[in-house]
């Protein structure tokens, strides 16, 4: 995650300049990929651009306590029935084909 060297603001999506204080190129910091479920949605109908994922799939919005609860999207790797608001989850970096391009993407599952 990017954290501004000038004002400590966490950024996501990535930025080239801090929207809070204007500092250039906020540096990246390692943050544990763990957090709490804030919301989720399960897509049953295929929409353009996400064909490679295959329906149904669940997208989760996770708040990261180690980054001021900044929220990150990700794909859910478990059963939807396992999900609940506030559930502790851990993530890993996978990849998704978007069109003909492979893009790194977060995958979340329940913390054990």
């Amino acid at each position: 995650m990017q954290r501004c060297q000038g004002c400590s603001h966490w950024h996501w999506p990535a930025v080239s300049r801090c929207s809070e204080c204007g500092a250039w190129d906020p540096p990246w910091q390692d943050v544990p990929i763990e957090g709490a479920v804030f919301s989720w949605a399960t897509t049953w109908h295929p929409f353009g651009g996400t064909e490679a994922i295959g329906v149904p799939y669940t997208t989760v919005l996770v708040a990261l306590p180690h980054a001021d609860n900044r929220r990150l999207l990700g794909l859910w790797e478990g059963e939807e029935g396992e999900l609940s608001m506030g559930a502790a989850v851990v993530g890993s970096v996978g990849a998704t084909m978007v069109g003909k391009t492979e893009v790194p993407s977060l995958r979340w599952r329940l913390a054990r």
Binding site: W12, P13, A14, F38, S39, W40, A41, T42, T43, H45, F47, G48, G49, T50, I53, Y57, T59, L61, L73, G74, L75, M85, A95, T96, V98, V103, P104, S105, L106
Partner: peptide, 24 residues
């Protein structure tokens, strides 16, 4: 930013987002 940070997570805009708002 949508194409880089949202589409890879299947968050097909705007359906997935409004669904998350509804669930919350």
């Amino acid at each position: 930013q949508r194409q880089e940070y949202e589409m890879p997570y299947g968050a097909s805009p705007p359906n997935g987002y409004y669904a998350m708002v509804a669930r919350r």
